[in-house]
Simulated assay, not measured.
Amino acid sequence: MSTKADTLGVVVVGAGPTGLLLAGDLAAAGVRVVVLDRNAEPVQTPKGNGVVGRAVLELRRRKLLRGTGLRVVRPPRFRFGPFTLELGLLRSPLHVLPVPQHRLELLLAQRAVRLGATVQRGREVTGFEQDGDGVTVQAAAGGSPVELRTRYLVGCDGARSFVRKYLGIGFPGVTSANISRLARVTIPAGAVARVGDRIEVRGVGPLVPFRPNRTGHGSITIAPADALDRSAPDDVYIVSTHEPRGDSEPTDELSDDELRASLRRVLGADLPYTTAVAARSVVANSRHAERYREGRVFLAGDAAHIFSAGGSAINAGLLDAVALGRTLAAVLRGAAPQAELDAYQSERRPAAQRTLALTRLQVALDADDETGEALRDVLGDLVRDRATARRVAALIEG
């Protein structure tokens, strides 16, 4: 058994944005914190493309963006399901930070380490036991067992969270009947042109970027990669198809033949790309953990909630980290009683529930059925009103 001097303040499982921000905030408060991640190296596969909402202000407040060239924008319009919210040119209520997730994780990891946190990669948590004084965490490192003793444990280990499953906490929700296949593709300059607010693709026709283009067999979304990452080549585009799932299962590695077949089914023509990278398929889920705490163990980020529409997961997870870091630091410093730890769930669970409602509404608005058509007919008139659009944007802001 570890001595009291060897006991850590917090062990965080998962080196994604949520876990790394939490670690940095705790280290800044003088807490001894270690982050464990099962991957030997940071994941470079393109995932999220930015942060949307109040979490952007939290990142800026921590001076995370200083000297990076990254810029916070307040967009005059923003997508909400099939609609475009017209927010106006002056003081949009929404803050957006375009940044690839792998770069955001690098910045957060550098900050956490600089402040005194330890990030250990290639460490897979295999179990843990808690008692009245702390938590004993078992992990595997290169096939060898490792044990750590900590006051508190936080699972920031994603939608398939080991920590949540080990605690036996339910994760009820809804799985989509559709599947998305996405990749970064290179389209030669002669086969594509950006004309006004359209992307003209040879053999396909005009496509509206950043929003689903509906066809008789699903939809396709396309966006220039350099609009989200200035370092990206100007011939690289992020594409995703959306079509009925059928018997298909999501996979982290999608073959080129499957990607081309999906594009052909949706478009009715071949997309003239030459190469594709980071091709994968996903099935959207909308789920919420039954609780965020079990004694000295907490859940945050995707381990606690996942959303069926983009733009919300990172924002919600980062705000979890802010709230939990503030509370844990106060308790560990002796500035607040342990009972204050209940405030984390009472603050963040209702916020996530509201975000779930917003994202589920967006999915319903996009549905190709009579209910979806009825919702679009009714809500389309409402969101065209700028005051209503700004109110919706304020909810997205969090």
Rank of each mutant, 00 (worst) to 15 (best):
H305N: 09
R354H: 08
E294Q: 07
P209L: 14
D320L: 07
G380W: 02
K63E: 15
V192P: 00
T186A: 08
N39H: 14
G334I: 13
R214K: 12
R121I: 10
G142N: 11
R164I: 10
V10W: 09
S176R: 05
V192M: 04
P244E: 15
P82Y: 05
G69P: 06
L254Y: 03
R348M: 00
A339F: 03
A389R: 04
L341G: 10
T371I: 13
D235K: 01
G122T: 07
L341A: 08
A289R: 01
A323N: 12
G9L: 09
E290Q: 13
V137N: 06
P350T: 11
R384T: 11
V174S: 06
E397C: 09
T150D: 08
R111M: 08
E41T: 14
T241P: 00
S219D: 06
L94V: 09
G325V: 06
G158W: 09
R79L: 15
P350F: 00
I314T: 11
V12N: 13
G398N: 08
R194C: 05
P250H: 07
F128K: 08
K47R: 15
T126H: 00
A313R: 09
R391D: 13
L8P: 03
T126D: 08
F83I: 12
G24D: 09
A330M: 06
V31L: 03
V283Y: 03
P75I: 03
V113N: 08
L153V: 10
A284L: 15
G127E: 03
R61G: 15
G122H: 02
D381R: 15
A329Y: 01
F162W: 10
E397G: 09
I187V: 11
R74S: 12
R386W: 00
K47I: 01
V146Q: 12
D157C: 02
P206I: 02
S286V: 04
H102C: 12
Y237S: 06
T215S: 12
F83T: 14
P76F: 01
A339H: 00
V119D: 00
V96F: 12
L153Q: 07
Y152L: 08
L97D: 04
P17N: 07
I222Q: 10
S92P: 01
L254W: 01
A351L: 12
R384Q: 15
D366S: 14
I238Y: 12
F210I: 04
P172F: 03
T7Y: 00
A276I: 04
G310Y: 04
L207G: 12
R123G: 04
Y273D: 10
R38Q: 15
G142R: 14
G168F: 03
A387R: 10
Q353H: 09
I220N: 00
R360K: 10
A177Y: 00
G170V: 10
L20M: 07
A335D: 15
D302T: 05
V52P: 01
V11T: 05
